[in-house]
Design a protein around this nucleic acid. Sequence first.
RNA 1: GGACCUGUGGUGCAGCUCGGAGUGCACGCCGCCCUGUCAAGGCGGAGGUCGCGGGUUCAAAUCCCGUCAGGUCCGCCA
Length: 571
Amino acid sequence: MRDLLCASIDRSMTGSVVTVCGWVAKRREHGEHLAFLDVRDRSGIVQAVVDGSVDVRSEYVVRITGTVSGRPEGTVNDRLATGAIELSDCTVEILAAAEPPPFQLDDRNDIDEQVRLRYRFLDIRREKMQRNLRLRAAVNATLRRAMDAQGFCEVETPLLWAPTPEGAREFVVPSRLHPGEFYVLPQSPQIAKQLLMVGGFDRYYQIARCLRDEDLRADRQFEFTQLDLEASFVTQDDILAFVAEAVLDAAEAATGVRPGTIGSMTWAEALDLYGTDKPDLRFAMVLQDLSAAFANTEVKAFSAPTVKALRVPGGASFSRSKLDQLTEQAKSLGAKGLAWFRITEDGIDSPLARFLNEEETRVIARVDDAQVGDIVLCVADEYTLACKVLGTLRGALGSPPVSEGPHHYVWITEFPMFEGIDEDGHLMAAHHPFTMPHPDDLDLIETDPLKVRSQAYDLVLNGWELGSGSVRIHRADIQSRIFKALGISDEEADNRFGFLLGAFKYGAPPHAGFAFGIDRLVAIFAGEENIREVIAYPKTQSGNDLMTGAPKDITDRQKRDLRIKIAAKGS
RNA sequence: GGACCUGUGGUGCAGCUCGGAGUGCACGCCGCCCUGUCAAGGCGGAGGUCGCGGGUUCAAAUCCCGUCAGGUCCGCCA
């Protein structure tokens, strides 16, 4: 139907007759005998010179046959890849007429996302969406190649799985053949892939769709895509190397530059220095611990187990209302307040300045090599809270836009095994209950469980958590000690994970794995703040698909088959 | 479940504080003119439930209450 793509036409083809197909991106009218058409296909646009009587308008689908010609002198368009040539003596065949689209596809105006999503099929015709989705395809292809090259075998796992009421809320699928019983859509192929290890697929991967019925965010959709992998007879370091190879290959494919090796820090270091387990390393602003200097302070606001400080470069110019707003933010995160100290020519400017003794003043003024014009923010509280509050402020005040700055990858290792206590007084697993504790901490499971580190690790890029993984427990004795710590009885464990634990009795190899979000990775590669920009058909924050209208009612027949009745609201 | 922001011809915005005729800008659309444009240009034109409902008022896009939709965030996401 066509010979080549619009943007592939160049000077070397001058004189030849070619046929292209595409959409009319723009028509420029010059009277009865001359009009210019920009014809667009997936490659770009080429200009066709046609008679003014040719009746095609924006977004008509056309097939144009014309002679490749150099443009007359002085009419070359340097801003266009094909700006030196045009198609002349054109025959225009209208393959499909088109109504004017509900919004312009030329990026001249911003478009409300509501409108874009309602007409997503038009939105993805736009150059930016074409670029983003093709970037995503290139990343997928690279990831597959990298995993294949490392000896991994792609295995598909079921979308219809058994309910495992643990972790994220699952999407439920009613069974027609077994009315009253349900499948769930997997929040991840976690158990399936561990069973693959028992099954002897010692290097598994999959580009897997995962589904979680939790509230949506800029970086979270109901359904998202992960590069999921698992391997047997490997250490944590092996897994990190497999993943790094795939991610760095993808980065190279996406950006043209292969990043250096991925550094790492422990979870405890990340919390201490950055106040978060997903630090954005594109900028410095490291938290400082002033607890020692304020151990015996007279300043009431600072009489707390921990005093943490954050220097904000240039922050001395913050207005009082800006500081009030930061204080409110700190309070909403659980802090009792936020102390601030402007570093000025004349010393420290702060409501608290007159309460500080000489040594304390000196310490404040030296935080993170503070300079005149900076501001130092302090939170005094329990250690973890102080870190997290300042970590959040650090991100809010320091993080550049997604599209800016280098790509700074970092491994976060040695996550705690347990975090907090649930309503029933049981410890909660920080990762999941099959995570192997750190070998040095096995003795602490029963004595000091909150100190137990795990062999769980995250990959973080520019403040985004890309993914996480762990070495799994393959020994029944350790598993039962973890279940015990979590308050999961033998019966309960059997009920929830019986088929996994049962399978492990038949020879479970030591294994470990990882999964990372491709949506997030591609969004960062594309410089997008929102993963919807790299997903063809995303849902809104309230879980609606504005194009299809989903979710929707089903027919009475469908309900009858499934024996489903909708209860009245509030019942 | 909660907080905040947004909603005005097809699209993007201004108008809203301080109520006074649907007023304006850019793009698009339709018609006419135009033989070298490429953000083409010129002339003319059509196009509105100011998200929806209620209230205050002589009078509401504008003030108040409620509600819906979209967004950002908190909770949630083992």
